[in-house]
């Protein structure tokens, strides 16, 4: 009987150590300072292909109560669904900022990652940062959009691409404008892309693309709009009990 007890204790210990293997990791540098708040500097709402690294790193900054930057505070990143951070924890630099490179998981959709720091009394301050993984359909949509859409729908110019957004009378909606686009049904979006703005009583400055793009390409564009929407798009699914 004693042996059985001993055996189960050994087993329990072995299991505990096996479970905690992940948390141990490499020894981390102890924080040299503590902040009260965490703010995002850059790198949220990026879109990248499933499983791939985001183009820009995510940068966060630790501030104290007065809002001045804190150097040497410990920042940890965490995220579900196979998100990988390089590195996932570290101390803020002299500018109070911490930078990490993020690779998204293998399934398309929205990834919510959390950055956290602790203040001197051990209370955690955290921020949530959203990133978007594009599946096949959204990737195709992005290719189509890069050729036919962004010049008017993106108000930002890049060195390689001058925006036409401000040359129009009707202001083309940004593809991330969830407040407007989420309210439009897939059928309406398909109509406006395929038949032009005039089809829905909107500006004729939006040309019809129904003879230029194929149906899968238009579907892919709608998929992209849904993926990029901010606030996030929630499909009108079936309502069900039990939750």
């Amino acid at each position: 009987m004693n042996r059985a007890w001993l055996g189960s204790i050994v087993l329990a210990l072995a299991m505990t150590s096996a479970c905690s293997r992940h948390a141990a990791g490499p020894a981390e540098a102890p924080p040299k300072a503590f902040g009260a708040a965490l703010v995002l500097v850059s790198g949220d709402k990026q879109a990248a292909g499933v499983g791939s690294a985001l183009d820009q790193p995510v940068v966060v900054q630790v501030n104290d109560e007065k809002g001045t930057t804190v150097a040497g505070a410990l920042v940890r990143f965490a995220g579900a669904g196979g998100v990988i951070f390089d590195p996932d924890r570290g101390l803020t630099g002299s500018d109070g900022q911490f930078t990490t490179n993020v690779s998204l998981g293998g399934v398309h959709g929205l990834y919510r990652i959390v950055a956290a720091t602790k203040n001197s009394s051990g209370k955690a301050a955290e921020i949530r940062i959203d990133e978007i993984a594009l599946g096949y359909q959204e990737t195709l949509g992005k290719q189509v959009s890069d050729i036919h859409c962004v010049r008017c729908h993106d108000s930002e110019s890049t060195p390689e691409r001058v925006s036409n957004h401000d040359n129009l009378i009707a202001q083309a909606h940004s593809f991330t404008d969830g407040a407007i686009l989420n309210a439009m049904s897939d059928a309406d979006l398909a109509a406006i892309i395929g038949h032009g703005g005039a089809a829905l009583g909107k500006s004729a400055e939006m040309p019809p693309y129904g003879n230029t793009l194929t149906k899968p390409e238009i579907d892919a564009l709608i998929g992209l709009l849904r993926a990029l929407a901010d606030p996030p798009y929630r499909p009108q699914g079936i309502f069900y009990a039990g939750r």
Binding site: G49, V50, Q137, V144
Partner: peptide, 23 residues
């Protein structure tokens, strides 16, 4: 195959340039 290399599988049949496989 990890998701980031998945377009490799398209390339087994598609020897042309597919718009949906930028990578």
């Amino acid at each position: 195959l990890p998701a980031r290399y998945l377009e490799a599988s398209c390339g087994q049949c598609h020897l042309d340039r597919l718009m949906g496989t930028p990578r």
